[in-house]
Design a protein around this nucleic acid. Structure first.
Length: 420
DNA sequence: TCTGGGGTCCTAGGACCC
DNA sequence: TCTGGGGTCCTAGGACCC
């Protein structure tokens, strides 16, 4: 089978550029929550050497001198742009696996005029460009990993290959893998690169030539599978129905450091309530709650604590989850502590209605109705229209800052761009 | 002064069982 | 002085991804 992987070039930046011509041709950075780091960079910004995750405060000069445009992240917009480009792909293929916010796999359609895979891929790129304004690239290959590598190669050699590379051909693979660093391969991170180096494995060609059993010893079964996939051996299928998440986290830095227990309780309650809302969206209940809070991790002696508790019976009721998260704060709090971040994780998720019940817990049959009513109100009238008392009211100094956010151009009627 | 947020998979090791 | 052989389940932590 042919795997086709499409990815969007600098997705967040490209999405911003579709609606704001001012951003075209100049260096652009999209920033992380709190506007701290660069999490997406335009080609112009990369040319100035701005690295992924680079902190803004260290680049003030550069930003000013070269007229960088900055934007806070606008996830409403990106989620909608993701929906749009997948809609275009679905005009070509009914078999799509959405892998991440900016990447999807799909099965290539066979064109009636008998044209090859590369021609089809080019047609997909052109249609996405025309209908959404987003620049994309496509990698083709006989396994998932090979299509991913192909996509990376297409990215690097866009001018030469027109945004599409097909790695079905073994000769082409041999030629391209020789100069493709091993750490560019999907699944090879920093640690594995270091472990492979002493074995003389520096390029993708070296990795592909590795004995799979040795690969397992150097890494894990994951690395073994990867080596096999580089050699066209792989049994995976497209996963068209997305699986439900096994865990959900809501963690945020604070806009201003938190120094009182009351604020930390409120901040934790807000994150806990959002996490509960997220698992209700996918129809799950959680069996375990983890909460943490810490100060600046780069300073010695920063406060830091984490607590875990079992939720029995498993639940998605905000009241229960917020109550336990707040209790965790009481046990974590250190007098004189300065906190910069906190969050909760909900784990052991399973489908609501299929959870293991608790023989000794009272059955609450009305909670689900209450939660769905609350969710419906918040969906219709805006976030936190109805909230729990523990979450406090209104904007707070510890809320995450997003000072340079673009409008919700495509998802809020009041913010739709106007053409004259 | 200031460095994001949200996931998955895998392994090792401890606790416990018969 | 010396202490088996199998399991399962859980947790913590590492590594990787976008």
């Amino acid at each position: 089978m042919t795997w086709a992987l499409v990815d969007v070039e600098n997705f967040y930046v490209s999405s911003e550029r579709v609606f704001d011509p001012k951003l075209r041709g100049v260096p652009v950075l999209v920033l992380s929550n709190g506007d701290h780091c660069a999490i997406a960079r335009s080609a112009e910004a990369k040319a100035f050497g701005v690295k992924m995750g680079a902190p803004v405060f260290k680049m003030r000069d550069l930003i000013k001198r070269h007229g960088f445009e900055l934007r806070s992240s606008n996830y409403e917009l990106y989620a909608d742009m993701n929906r749009r480009f997948n809609a275009v792909i679905s005009e070509f293929s009914d078999q799509i696996e959405i892998y991440s916010i900016d990447e999807s796999w799909f099965r290539l359609p066979v064109l009636s005029d008998g044209l090859g895979d590369t021609t089809t891929a080019l047609a997909v790129i052109a249609k996405i460009r025309r209908d959404t304004g987003l620049p994309t690239r496509i990698g083709l290959g006989p396994t998932r990993t090979l299509s991913k590598v192909a996509n990376g190669l297409a990215k690097a050699g866009e001018k030469v290959f027109g945004g599409v590379i097909d790695l079905h051909d073994e000769e082409l693979r041999k030629r391209l893998f020789k100069n493709w660093p091993v750490d560019e391969v999907w699944g090879i991170g920093r640690a594995l690169t270091e472990r492979l180096r002493p074995l003389g494995i520096r390029t993708t060609a070296d990795l592909a030539a590795m004995d799979p059993h040795q690969a397992r010893n150097v890494g894990t079964v994951v690395l073994e599978r990867l080596v096999r996939e580089l050699n066209e051996i792989g049994e995976d299928e497209l996963q068209i129905e997305p699986e439900k998440r096994q865990a959900t986290a809501v963690t945020r830095m604070f806009g201003e450091p938190v120094t009182t227990i009351e604020e930390l309780r409120e901040a934790m309650a807000r994150r806990a309530a959002r996490a509960a809302e997220k698992i209700r969206e996918q129809g799950s209940v959680a069996g375990r709650l983890i909460g943490f809070a810490h100060g600046n991790g780069r300073k010695a002696n920063a406060s830091s604590a984490q607590r875990t508790c079992r939720l029995s019976p498993p639940t998605n009721d905000s009241r229960t989850i917020v109550k336990w998260a707040s209790r965790m704060v009481d046990s974590m709090w250190e007098q004189g502590g300065v906190y910069t971040k906190c969050g909760v994780m909900l784990e052991d998720l399973c489908d609501a209605g299929r959870e293991q019940t608790d023989l000794f817990a009272a059955v609450d049959t009305r909670g689900a109705d209450l939660m769905s009513t609350m969710d419906a109100l918040n969906k219709r009238f805006g976030k936190e229209t109805v909230a729990l008392g523990a979450m406090g009211i209104g904007a707070r100094s510890f809320d995450t800052k997003r000072a340079m956010k673009s409008p919700a151009w495509t998802t809020r009627l009041a913010e739709v761009p106007v053409a004259r």
